[in-house]
């Protein structure tokens, strides 16, 4: 069969909503796009453990420590599901980790912002996980089977993340004046970076919509962002707090909230590595990996020793 025929068969499958599995024929660009997207997603889960891990020891009660620990552990699991999905495309796990640590691979820019107060744990759960969930719910229907299955598993675990975050803020919003101020401050700092998570405006990009045609993606950045704004603009009222955007207003004719312009200069700056914590995050990742080297070596040595012993017993 010619490549052209294979491509047609491939697109027919996609159009009929038949999932693509690892051993099926696929265009090279489909493989590459999935590999890049899934591995970036995996890296985001792993780097995303850092701003929150930073607060586990300082969470205000044993209950909050246990919850935060469980959430951060979930994110580690999400990283694993996604690395496994990426590996089905024929790329080694160790190479992905190496590419993350060398700065070759990217991860979500949101994790390059610092988590300064306890309220940030609330804002991250509510806004950052909230924004991620909208993307991930859409990806449950993505065309590459292993990615879609990983997403279904992740989405099941995510909803507690957003709820525990909102609950942290809810408690603060009903607390002392200082707690209320801390709550509002965290929302102020996390709101715009959360909106940036959805990526550039649709009009910014003149390139082809190949990801849509291949059903890797099913919604545009602006669609997802609007969905997020509409959701959060209502939820923030329950907290009795405000979003730091004077242009945020319900538009009766559009049946959506209008909102202000995002600072795209800041967005590109953080993507390119100049955000407040880019350096710190990669250093923390590298350090954790290097410090764990002896554990990995010991486990390999122990496994080899056990295997050798089994051989002598059998002989």
């Amino acid at each position: 069969m010619s490549v052209h025929e294979l491509e047609k068969l491939f697109q027919d499958k996609i159009d009929q909503e038949i999932k693509i599995e690892p051993r099926d024929w696929m265009p090279e660009a489909y493989r590459k796009t999935n590999l890049r997207q899934i591995s970036q997603h995996a890296h985001s889960e792993i780097v995303g453990m850092l701003p929150e891990g930073n607060w586990i020891g300082r969470a205000p009660s044993l209950k909050r420590k246990a919850i935060l620990l469980a959430k951060v552990q979930d994110e580690g699991g999400h990283g694993l599901y996604l690395y496994s999905a990426a590996e089905t495309l024929g790329f080694s796990r160790d190479q992905m980790i190496e590419d993350l640590h060398s700065g070759k691979a990217k991860y979500s820019s949101i994790f390059n912002y610092p988590s300064l107060t306890w309220a940030d744990m609330g804002a991250i759960g509510w806004l950052v996980d909230g924004a991620a969930i909208l993307n991930q719910v859409m990806l449950c229907r993505t065309s590459y089977g292993p990615y879609a299955r990983a997403m279904v598993r992740i989405c099941k675990e995510e909803s507690f993340h957003q709820r525990q975050g909102f609950e942290i803020l809810l408690v603060l919003s009903r607390g002392t004046e200082a707690q209320k101020a801390m709550c509002q401050d965290a929302i102020n700092r996390w709101w715009w970076p959360s909106l940036m998570m959805f990526g550039p405006k649709d009009s910014e990009s003149t390139n082809s919509d190949q990801s849509m045609k291949w059903k890797i993606k099913r919604k545009s950045n602006d669609e997802l962002r609007q969905q997020f704004v509409d959701m959060i603009a209502e939820q923030v009222k329950v907290l009795g707090m405000t979003l730091p955007d004077p242009d945020l207003v319900w538009n009766e004719s559009r049946k959506h909230y209008d909102f202000g312009e995002i600072n795209w200069e800041e967005f590109w700056n953080v993507v390119k590595g100049n955000g407040p914590c880019n350096k710190q995050r990669l250093e923390a990742r590298r350090k954790a990996h290097d410090n764990g080297a002896w554990v990995r070596e010991a486990a390999s040595a122990y496994a080899a020793k056990k295997a050798a012993r089994r051989k002598t017993v059998a002989a």
Binding site: R36, E204, N207, L224
Partner: peptide, 16 residues
């Protein structure tokens, strides 16, 4: 066929 996917979608940052 040489397809290059460069569009910057949520969760997919192009290499270039």
């Amino acid at each position: 066929m040489q397809i290059q996917v460069k569009k910057f979608y949520y969760g997919d940052i192009p290499d270039s």
